[in-house]
């Protein structure tokens, strides 16, 4: 069914704009039209469908699922719940406080916060249709693993030392369960509201991602990446991770960039860790987390993630 978007891009590029198929501009325009139409279509559809099931995935529910479970189990549960729960970084702080207050270990809380932005239904479906399901499975598996290890490391290194004091003093008492209108009409209204809100919030990131991807696809020669980011360049992986730290996008926005890089022959490990670093280590997210975790703790946390990504990158490049 996705040929439709390729067809649309063909019509726009070759029939309407009359661009010569071999030109860089034609390649860029084709990439841009195909990815824009496909990604925004999928984005809206998936957010809508997920919106219909929101009451199952509310953060209050996640807290209940995790509360009182054995520590070892909480990491696994947390990353899986993080992956399926729709997430906005603006709810990081209430979520963090809510989890800590319920006695959920900080490791599981952080595991949830690592996995949640990296892996979600939207990114998985779009990634699958664009770069293939095999690589998507690798991305998801790696994301979950880094989340589990990250959570575990937070417990081992006693991250709770860095939690702001006021967090421990908050007593929420009974958590108020949101009363959802669970009629079909209520669900549809909510789902449509979610589409408008989320697309409204992230469209610019997605757009920029597609534009960067299109530019790379049409105008950067393959030899450029072969020279600078090929499998022989040992610095490519750490550089990809470092480059991703100041850059920030959400998981959907980074996909077109990954698509273009893979097309240029950049090794999978390098692309994978660039994606993860852009999404998981981000300044806006850390500014929000700073409200509950002291700077020193955040620096440790970011360093751990960067190190983990570098290992992942080398591993996959070696396996390729």
């Amino acid at each position: 069914m996705f040929e439709l978007f390729t067809l649309l891009a063909n019509v726009v590029t070759y029939d309407i704009l009359q661009l010569a198929p071999s030109s860089g501009l034609a390649k860029s325009v084709h990439f841009f039209v195909e990815d824009t139409s496909k990604i925004f279509f999928l984005l809206s559809v998936i957010i809508f469908v997920m919106g219909l099931f929101r009451s199952l995935l509310a953060p209050e529910k996640v807290r209940l699922y995790l509360e009182g479970k054995p520590k070892g189990l909480t990491y696994f549960l947390a990353v899986i719940l993080g992956a399926v729960t729709p997430f906005c970084s603006c709810s990081s702080v209430p979520l963090f406080i809510g989890f800590i207050e319920a006695g959920i270990p900080i490791g599981a809380t952080m595991a949830f916060l690592i996995a949640s932005p990296m892996i979600n239904e939207v990114a998985v479906v779009i990634l699958g249709t664009i770069i293939g399901w095999e690589l998507t499975a690798v991305y998801v598996g790696t994301g979950l693993l880094v989340g589990i290890l990250g959570g575990w490391a937070c417990d081992v290194f006693k991250m709770e030392r860095f939690v702001e004091d006021y967090v421990w003093k908050i007593r929420t008492g009974q958590i108020v369960m949101p009363a959802y209108d669970n009629s079909l009409k209520g669900r549809m209204t909510f789902a449509w509201g979610e589409v408008k809100e989320i697309v409204g919030r992230i469209w610019l990131y997605v757009f920029i991602g597609i534009a960067v991807g299109a530019g790379l696809h049409g105008f950067v020669p393959t030899t450029f990446f072969a020279d600078y980011a090929g499998p022989d360049n040992l610095f490519a992986v750490p550089l990809a991770v470092l480059a991703g730290i100041p850059l920030y996008s959400n998981a959907t926005g980074v996909i077109p960039v990954a698509e273009a890089l893979l097309g240029k022959g950049v090794p999978i490990g390098t692309v994978l860790v660039l994606m993860m670093s852009v999404v998981a280590i981000s300044i806006p997210e850390f500014v929000i987390l700073r409200k509950v975790i002291r700077l020193q703790g955040l620096v440790y946390f970011a360093s751990f993630l960067a190190l983990a990504f570098i290992c992942v990158g080398y591993l996959f490049n070696a396996l390729q």
Binding site: I97, I170, T172, V176, P178, Y180
Partner: peptide, 22 residues
């Protein structure tokens, strides 16, 4: 959080939480 609300917006009338989550 002191009101027990994790999903905002929430509405409190006369110190009683009557609504949360949208």
């Amino acid at each position: 959080m002191g009101y027990g609300v994790m999903s905002t917006p929430g509405v409190v009338v006369e110190e009683k939480v009557l609504h949360a989550g949208g």
